[in-house]
Amino acid sequence: MLDDFLFRAVLGGVLLAVVCGPFGAFIVWRRMAFFGDMLAHTALLGVALGLLIGVDVRIGMIATCLAAALILAYGQRQSRIGSDTVLGMLAHSTLALGMVALAFVQGVAIDLMAYLFGDILAVNTGDILLLAIGGAFALCVLAWMWRPLLALTVSPEIAAAESIPVERLRLIFMLLMALVIGMAIKIVGVLLITALLIVPAASARFFARTPEQMAIGAGLFGAASVLAGIALSWHVDTPAGPSIVISAAAIFVASGIVMTAKRHFSQG
């Protein structure tokens, strides 16, 4: 069955969406959407470096994302420059650097659109293996640090006062994010990965009463978006990555309408 490109696309997309659910919830809670965007931008540099050095492009993307997360963790300790400025500088300089570096890559025809908007229909068995292993690893680490990371999100002060290693958890979370984003680019691309993280989580917010419900709900809504997006792409022949994001946005709007209507009726 792995021979069928459609099956591979669905499997890879659903795997990614399930991993992105809980991470997206944390991005929404911690207001790190721009951080996700920044990491994705640096991935293009990873593509160029991978091609130049002759390493697998996927490894290149994950490695540059991890490096960017480390630089950012350091950069955010500087108080003279706001962390949003540090993010913006890093995002766009690395994007520019990536484009310049790509110009040096000779003889390889690069499908830039595939990196910007994803190429889920070209997902191969190696991609799926990477997503399964990397995704399982990321989810396991996240589950392991779930309670302290959530405490830290609610109040860094309570967490620190009650002996939670705040700085270490922040760093681990940033590195996990980098891993997830590095893996995700093949599916939805540099420009759309943040949407797959935050939109399903935002939809899940309407229905959730606890953080855990929101994280699981985000995974389910993400998976539904992937299925709907691929179906749309299949039947109407639209680009798959953007179709997934549009589906996620449609689910968000529908959720909002349903919940608003429900509240309206329950109040009489």
């Binding site: 929404v28 809670w29 207001r31 309670r147 302290p148 959530l150 405490a151 999100t153 609610v154 309570i158 967490a159 009650e162 939670i164 917010r205 959730a208 009463r209 606890t210 953080p211 855990e212 419900q213 929101m214």
Partner: peptide
């Protein structure tokens, strides 16, 4: 934050 759904019960078991 409103973006974080949290019941009192869940908050009590925060740490």
């Amino acid at each position: 934050d409103q973006v974080l759904p949290m019941t009192v019960k869940r908050f009590l078991t925060l740490t």
